[in-house]
């Protein structure tokens, strides 16, 4: 009985997000002719493929109790580097893509190492990563580099039919693949479970003999990999590299993850929720486009409001859970003591 209650309260934020998505899609379908179509649904995946990939990496980092602010500029840097290698060095995508992925992973690894080995705040370290990647973009080039490479062109224009003539782009397929793999890793591998354990309580994870250091570093490396992959998919989408791409995307990503029910305190979260979070983010944009008269900046206000609603919801759940466990939520005194 109590277990059932616990399980449902843990899944409730995801159900709320799912409900929200269905309601928004329903309202859009009623209000706007031509809104309700399978293609319009699939477009959400196409237009937000890169965000989805970033969000997967971010989910792992946040579940482990950390944060990665560098993803937006890493996306820009990956796009810049791939565009430059393709167009200026005329390298084959066969080499460019692995190089870029390796670069992203390496930078994530480096930041993870700093955070773990020297007990530094992830917020500041990845913030510096944000600066670094953004600055490196302009080291590569101050101007937009458009990508004319055949493979990238083909990937940008390819349409893979899913149901009838409704299609997904290769980028969207990659994103869905990343989500599925991420879901599997988080649920069924030792690494995934360790990430949850660390987010729940790093001390306990350590005492249980779990490889805390290695896993924590790995989550940042994973996030770096995802942002590099996101950058490549973004390049498929826009066919150009530009230093201002993905500005502020780190916070869009965090917002999507939070809307998806992942707790920023760590330990709780689900990649299916993250997928829904990104879809909600996407549908708000689509609704505002369909509505037509509203300034597109309303997207940001609505997203801010949703983050607010979800955080309050989460606080309520936490409070209730704390009450059922017979204690108030112990607010990170352990963490504060450890950091001192």
């Amino acid at each position: 009985m109590s277990r059932k209650l616990f399980a449902s309260s843990r899944n409730l934020p995801i159900l709320v997000t799912l409900g929200l998505f269905i309601v928004m899609f329903g309202l859009g379908s009623i209000a706007f002719p031509g809104f309700f179509s399978i293609q319009n649904f699939l477009n959400l995946f196409i237009d937000n493929s890169y965000l989805l990939i970033l969000a997967v990496g971010m989910t792992f980092v946040i579940i482990s109790g950390g944060i990665d602010l560098s993803v937006g500029s890493m996306l820009a840097l990956s796009g810049m580097v791939s565009a430059s290698l393709l167009e200026k060095a005329h390298m084959s995508p066969l080499f460019v893509i692995p190089i870029v992925l390796l670069m992203g992973t390496a930078l994530g690894l480096f930041m993870g190492y700093l955070i773990q080995a020297f007990d530094l705040p992830p917020f500041i370290i990845t913030l510096a990563g944000l600066y670094l990647a953004r600055g490196l973009c302009y080291v590569v080039s101050l101007f937009t580099i458009s990508v004319k490479n055949n493979f990238f062109q083909a990937a940008a224009h390819a349409q893979v039919n899913i149901i009838g003539t409704n299609f997904l782009s290769p980028g969207a397929l990659i994103a869905i693949g990343v989500v599925l793999i991420g879901f599997f890793v988080s649920r069924y591998t030792k690494f995934g479970r360790t990430v949850y354990a660390i987010g729940g309580s790093e001390q306990s994870a350590l005492l249980m003999g779990l490889p805390v250091a290695r896993t924590k570093i790995a989550t940042y490396a994973l996030s770096g990999f995802c942002s590099a992959l996101g950058g490549i998919v973004f390049t498929f989408y826009t066919l150009s590299g530009y230093g201002l791409n993905g500005k502020g995307m780190e916070l869009d990503t965090i917002a999507a993850v939070v809307i998806g029910g992942t707790l920023l305190t760590g330990g709780v979260g689900n990649l299916f929720g993250t997928l829904l979070g990104v879809l909600v983010y996407g549908i708000i944009q689509v609704l505002i486009v369909f509505q037509g008269t509203l300034n597109s900046w309303w997207t940001r206000i609505v997203i801010g409001f949703l983050v607010f609603v979800f955080c309050v919801l989460q606080r309520l759940f936490e409070a209730r859970k704390g009450a059922t466990l017979g204690r108030n939520t112990a607010r990170e005194p352990a963490k504060a003591a450890a950091g001192r």
């Binding site: 944060i67 305190t265 997207t299 940001r300 997203i303 983050v307 955080c311």
Partner: peptide
């Protein structure tokens, strides 16, 4: 509401720029 400060201020970080643009 006892939100974590990062998230609590994330809301205005996201929405604030929207409000300014509106």
């Amino acid at each position: 509401v006892r939100m974590q400060p990062i998230i609590a201020t994330l809301i205005l970080f996201v929405a604030g720029r929207g409000i300014a643009m509106v």
